[in-house]
Simulated assay, not measured.
Amino acid sequence: MTNQEIANQVKELYEKIDKQTEKLAQTTGLKCPPGCGRCCENPDIETTPLEMLPIALELFQKKQFQELIEKADTVNWEGRCIFYEPDLFIAGNGRCSIYAFRPSVCRLFGFAAVKNKQGGAELAACRYHKEIMPEMVQKVKESIAGGLPVASFSEIAFQLSNIEPSLGNQRMPINQALKVAIQRVGLMAQWETGER
Rank of each mutant, 00 (worst) to 15 (best):
37 G>Q: 02
138 Q>G: 10
99 Y>H: 15
91 A>I: 10
78 E>K: 15
94 G>Y: 08
40 C>E: 10
131 E>V: 05
72 A>H: 06
33 P>H: 02
131 E>L: 11
76 N>T: 05
106 C>Q: 01
90 I>G: 00
84 Y>H: 15
43 P>R: 08
147 G>C: 09
94 G>T: 08
142 E>R: 09
81 C>E: 06
61 Q>Y: 09
59 L>E: 02
38 R>S: 03
82 I>N: 03
98 I>S: 04
112 A>M: 01
20 Q>T: 05
70 E>D: 11
101 F>A: 03
102 R>S: 04
144 I>Q: 01
36 C>E: 07
146 G>E: 05
32 C>N: 07
123 L>H: 03
108 L>Y: 03
98 I>L: 07
108 L>D: 09
102 R>K: 15
92 G>S: 08
117 K>P: 02
62 K>H: 12
56 A>G: 07
135 E>T: 10
37 G>T: 07
58 E>G: 03
135 E>V: 03
110 G>S: 08
87 D>S: 13
23 K>Q: 15
111 F>L: 15
29 G>W: 12
59 L>V: 07
62 K>Q: 15
60 F>E: 08
106 C>F: 09
30 L>E: 00
53 L>C: 01
143 S>N: 11
97 S>I: 02
60 F>D: 00
128 Y>F: 15
80 R>Q: 14
26 Q>N: 13
141 K>T: 09
62 K>F: 07
51 E>Q: 15
115 K>D: 13
75 V>Y: 01
111 F>Y: 13
27 T>H: 01
123 L>M: 08
51 E>H: 01
43 P>G: 08
78 E>T: 13
76 N>K: 14
27 T>R: 08
144 I>P: 02
129 H>F: 15
113 A>E: 09
114 V>N: 14
34 P>K: 13
115 K>S: 15
75 V>W: 02
65 F>G: 05
83 F>K: 02
21 T>Q: 10
41 E>G: 13
73 D>N: 13
45 I>G: 05
81 C>K: 04
20 Q>A: 14
36 C>R: 06
79 G>F: 08
26 Q>M: 11
128 Y>H: 13
88 L>D: 07
107 R>K: 11
47 T>E: 06
138 Q>H: 11
28 T>F: 10
70 E>T: 07
146 G>W: 07
117 K>L: 15
147 G>H: 12
105 V>G: 01
134 P>F: 07
117 K>M: 14
57 L>A: 02
46 E>T: 14
95 R>Q: 13
41 E>N: 07
39 C>P: 06
101 F>H: 11
145 A>F: 03
46 E>I: 10
124 A>W: 10
133 M>C: 03
44 D>Y: 13
80 R>Y: 14
126 C>W: 01
16 K>W: 14
142 E>F: 00
130 K>F: 00
130 K>E: 15
64 Q>P: 02
50 L>E: 04
26 Q>P: 00
135 E>Q: 14
124 A>E: 06
114 V>I: 14
106 C>T: 03
68 L>N: 01
85 E>R: 08
50 L>H: 04
68 L>T: 02
51 E>G: 00
122 E>A: 15
46 E>S: 08
93 N>G: 00
33 P>M: 02
110 G>N: 05
92 G>V: 07
119 G>P: 06
73 D>K: 12
54 P>V: 11
142 E>A: 12
105 V>K: 06
34 P>W: 00
